[in-house]
């Protein structure tokens, strides 16, 4: 029973990180109808940058700087993907963000090399809760994710900016007609997504080292989380991430750790497939 709870706790914390990445995908998708392949890059670059900066400054400062840098990179990517042509189709955006992902990977290789990067978590001790070990890093990760989810949900539902963001994805032309600058919103959405990805990366890297090619794995897991909520729901993405994280950890614990990646991805495919059935039946 203790082991089971341990897997659940670790799973929730991993899942929160997937959720953050997934929410980033949702933000861009809701605003621009584009799937942002580069969503994993943000987490990786933020993690790597922090791991280097932390050698010269306090962790919090390093993390904040890394997140700021990555948010800027994200905004730039949005400008390239959405801004240059202004009428990119979802297929075009998907391929462009893949291209940008590769360029980013190439730069990471040049700057950081091809080894894995990590740094120490906020605290090395773990709380013993009835035999279940809870690392403070887990709690921080989950707490930050919950706050972000609530905040974004409010942003989309209650504020004019949020409504405009959603309106832009509903009909680009109609949004332009009522005076919404869709390019600016695209850039803002990408920046926001990069901020979320960077946040997830900074919080997760101490638990799971990152290398230049970790981004695809992270993006795929984030996509699975987002797909759980049909790509449009912020709480859905968080829930999807947590389901995925728990399932992964249970499989590793009870089945065979060798199959971790395989099972995780099969679960993800099953989630998407389930979602597909759901969507077809409601459509």
């Amino acid at each position: 029973m203790t082991a089971f709870l341990q897997y659940i706790v670790t799973g929730i914390s991993d899942g929160a990180a997937y959720g953050l990445v997934g929410i980033g995908l949702v933000v861009v998708f809701r605003t621009t109808n584009a799937l942002n392949f580069a969503q994993g890059v943000y987490a990786v670059v933020a993690g790597m940058t922090t791991s280097v900066l932390v050698l010269h400054m306090p962790l919090v400062l390093a993390a904040v700087l890394a997140i700021a840098i990555v948010t800027t990179i994200g905004g730039l990517m949005g400008l390239i993907t959405i801004g240059i042509r202004g009428d990119t189709t979802p297929l075009t955006s998907l391929i462009v963000t893949l291209g940008l992902t590769l360029i980013a990977e190439s730069c990471e290789l040049l700057i950081f090399g091809d080894g894995p990067h990590s740094y120490a978590p906020i605290a090395n001790h773990a709380w013993d809760v009835g035999g279940v070990l809870v690392q403070p890093q887990y709690v921080l990760l989950l707490g930050v994710t919950l706050v972000v989810t609530l905040g974004l949900n409010l942003l989309f539902r209650k504020t004019i900016v949020g409504n405009a963001l959603v309106a832009a994805s509903d009909s680009l032309r109609a949004a332009r007609l009522v005076g919404i600058d869709t390019v600016t919103f695209g850039v803002v959405a990408f920046g926001l997504a990069a901020f979320l990805g960077a946040l997830g990366g900074v919080l997760l890297t101490p638990l799971m080292p990152v290398a230049y090619d970790s981004d695809l794995n992270i993006a795929v897991n984030g996509f699975a989380a987002a797909a759980f909520g049909g790509l449009v729901s912020v709480p859905g993405a968080l829930l999807g991430g947590i389901v995925l994280g728990m399932a992964e950890n249970l499989v590793v614990g009870y089945v065979n750790p060798q199959y971790e990646l395989t099972i995780a991805l099969v679960i993800m495919l099953a989630l998407i497939g389930w979602r597909a059935r759901h969507e077809v039946s409601t459509a």
Binding site: T92, L98, G99, L100, T101, C107
Partner: peptide, 12 residues
């Protein structure tokens, strides 16, 4: 890097 550049530039 070159593949990334080709994808980005050509598709845009």
């Amino acid at each position: 890097g070159v593949f990334g550049l080709i994808l980005t530039v050509v598709v845009l």
